[in-house]
Design a binder for these strands. Structure first.
Lengths: 214, 214
DNA sequence: GCAATAGTGTCTTTCAGACAATATGTT
DNA sequence: AACATATTGTCTGAAAGACACTATTGC
């Protein structure tokens, strides 16, 4: 998942074979007998989206008996945090990859999300993958304030406005600008780089970088 | 897991067979081919600890290749929230069940927890089960303020002091009494029952109950 | 009355939201 | 200079921490 055009988005693959032929689905694969779950997630991401060195965290394990109409499949879902450059790289690396936007009709919860393509048409994902995406967004919302997940959705140098856009996109609300600045700086999570934005038609913003505090 | 004597605790089983013979371990079992993960968790809890109707939530899936020295095992760990009565019931229902205390040496994190028996002696759990317990405690801490998990660790009627004890045990810190009361009441999560504590040698506290706000 | 804990009132501090003023780039 | 956004200052209100005070039960 990532943030594009001030909205949360996810990379999907168009399915060729049945079941759910022609529908979009999350990239997935089987875990090898001698492979850890995280290694498998990284391998799938590399093979299906051409991405490597992406921060991933385990999301949830889906084990309902009839999730897959063919046979019993237990899926350990992982959430990959994609910076804008990674999203563009994946779209270029593989023609089957698409980037869909997650629209959240209700403001407070993520019970019901709509996955829409670039044109705004709703996509119905294969299997229970919409449910997986809804949980992923909920997880992002929950961790945004307490962990550094927001920075993994940005380039290494970013402006405070970009950071706020990411937070607003994930939360689905607007935030108070001075309060947001104060909070981020007070947390000690970001450090000024001395560099400034370029190519704007107005005052350029200062560029910050994530400062790991561990 | 539950809270006993103002400290977090967990139900464990003493292992009979190798590997880790004689050491304590979390109750576990294999998932049936036609059984969901949650159903399997409830079944294991019933068969190994004599407990039913316990609130459970999925914790994490552990998939390191060498977790089990015999062969590759992927474990979907579930966290069961036990009220005091459930802990006592499990201890009586099965002689092999023991209730161990989780001691957290550091105040801020749960990187390193000590599992100790009733006498205070440290237990070394089988497999990666100490790591699982550490993650469970971390999860409880994280959810305590935002969800109703605290109430699942209490009887249906409880005093504010009992509720505060649960929060303090899980967090490993003391809390301010008036502020805690205000917060709980303002959240709308609890409702007075009109009943009062009995059997105390001092002023009895009012009994509250959890009030589901959904 | 005494001991012990329940329950409340109030002051202070901290922090987020609101709003507006100032700063600094491009065109 | 006009414009657009960055950045900062300040006021206000909500909520937590600290601390002390009052209340109520058993003995």
């Amino acid at each position: 998942m990532g943030v594009r055009k001030r909205a949360p988005c996810a990379l999907l693959l168009r399915r060729g074979a049945a079941p759910f032929a022609g529908q979009a689905a999350l990239p997935g694969g089987f875990v090898g007998a001698g492979e850890s779950l995280e290694d498998a997630a990284q391998r799938v991401l590399r093979d299906k989206a051409g991405l490597s060195d992406v921060r991933c965290e385990q999301l949830y394990t889906f084990g309902e008996v009839a999730r897959d109409p063919r046979r019993r499949i237990v899926t350990v879902a992982w959430l990959a945090l994609l910076a804008p450059a990674a999203i563009e790289a994946a779209l270029e690396a593989h023609p089957g990859v698409l980037c869909a936007t997650l629209a959240v009709p209700e403001a407070d919860g993520v019970r019901d999300i709509h996955v829409v393509d670039r044109a705004g048409a709703r996509l119905h994902l294969a299997f229970d993958h919409e449910q997986i995406l809804a949980l992923a967004l909920e997880r992002l919302r929950g961790k945004l304030d307490y962990t550094a997940v927001g920075f993994d959705l940005l380039p290494s140098f970013f402006t405070l406005r970009q950071l706020q856009d990411v937070h607003e996109a994930i939360r689905g609300t607007t935030l108070n600008k001075p309060a947001f600045r104060r909070r981020m700086i007070d947390k000690g999570w970001i450090a000024p780089t001395g560099a400034r934005e370029t190519g704007t038609s107005h005052r350029p913003a200062a560029l910050y970088r994530f400062r790991d505090v561990t």
